[in-house]
């Protein structure tokens, strides 16, 4: 932790208080009633003023009661696409008592969005989902979670910050792709255009029902006759197209972002078309492969492109 961060942390109050819109109006009315009471000496105005001020004090006390015994845990996804909403989950627990009207969000505005929890009972963890948006690609260090409450009257939003460090990989946004790159190997056979095809020349992988417009030459007639429907033989593919996507290491900032977005989009497109996709970028190589796990590997590599290892500055 740098000295600046320590200093900022030391200066930061344990609770922050924001006045809501209705709270502002309420305060203006309270001020007006107070001035009216002082000017006129009308005792009923003093009575109303006393009630209004008590409500303000009570708001502070009850909201403190709500957020003081809370604990929160962040449940991160594997990664998230930049500028696309994704679900971030928080688990909020309370040792004793009850909490009401709790808003959970990332501290310091790291991610836009929040989760709402109407009630938290003691010993019963509540998982709430926040639809958040990460602004840009790269490793996003999440430092703190903010728990806020509007309870009891919605006049003020009292917040408490929990230091909770996590790293979220923000994958590049999948941008527009113009031209698919040249395949590494130019072979093409059978139903290569079909996304679901598994009709390579390797070992038998399995049987499945013949789909629309699929090649009837692959039907396993004997099995089909026994089950009464057309079943197709699937074999391991050895005829996939392989692509290796490359991003130059000397690309300037904006261009790098665009390249990453395009590469992410291409990866998705080529994988969905049945190809194997690899990546060469920033001195790192990922051999061509397929499947969701492989796509995540490529996306994670793209996310880290241009960034140092977690914990270091870009």
């Amino acid at each position: 932790m740098t000295w600046r961060e320590r200093w900022r942390r030391w200066l930061r109050p344990p609770r922050t208080l924001k006045i809501t819109r209705i709270g502002r109006t309420y305060l203006v009315i309270t001020l007006g009633v107070g001035l009216g009471a002082l000017n006129t000496g009308n005792n009923l105005l003093y009575l109303v003023l006393g009630f209004l001020l008590s409500i303000i004090v009570l708001s502070g006390v009850l909201s403190e009661r709500v957020i003081r015994d809370l604990a929160v845990r962040r449940l991160l996804p594997d990664g998230a696409f930049a500028q696309e909403p994704f679900a971030l989950r928080y688990e909020v627990t309370r040792a004793e008592g009850r909490a009401f009207a709790v808003k959970v969000s990332e501290g310091e505005g790291a991610l836009a969005g929040w989760a709402w929890i109407p009630t938290v009972l003691a010993g019963q963890p509540v998982v709430a989902r926040a639809d958040v948006v990460a602004p840009r690609r790269g490793p996003l260090r999440l430092k703190e979670v903010q728990l806020s409450t509007f309870f009891p009257f919605g006049l003020f939003e009292k917040s408490r910050t929990f230091e909770l460090e996590d790293l979220l990989l923000v994958w590049p946004r999948r941008g527009f792709t113009c031209t698919p790159p040249q395949a590494d190997h130019g072979r093409q056979a059978g139903e290569l255009g079909n996304q679901r095809h598994r009709d390579g020349s390797g070992d038998v992988q399995g049987l499945r029902e013949l789909g629309e417009l699929e090649d009837a030459r692959r039907v396993h007639w004997k099995k089909s006759a026994s089950v009464g429907k057309l079943l197709k033989v699937e074999r391991e593919r050895e005829d996939k197209k392989q692509f290796t996507l490359r991003i130059g290491s000397e690309v300037p900032g904006d261009q790098l972002e665009r390249d990453c977005e395009e590469t992410a989009a291409l990866t998705n497109r080529l994988l969905s078309e049945g190809g194997d996709v690899g990546l060469e970028a920033g001195g790192r190589k990922i051999r061509p492969g397929s499947g969701p796990g492989h796509e995540k590997r490529i996306l994670s590599a793209l996310a880290m492109l241009g960034y140092a290892l977690p914990g270091r500055e870009r």
């Binding site: 006129t40 003023l49 006393g50 009630f51 001020l53 008590s54």
Partner: peptide, 17 residues
């Protein structure tokens, strides 16, 4: 609290209005 405030807050003017 409102009643306590009412009792204890010093009246700075007479009830005229």
């Amino acid at each position: 609290g409102g009643v306590s405030f009412f009792i204890l807050f010093p009246r700075l003017s007479w009830n005229l209005a």
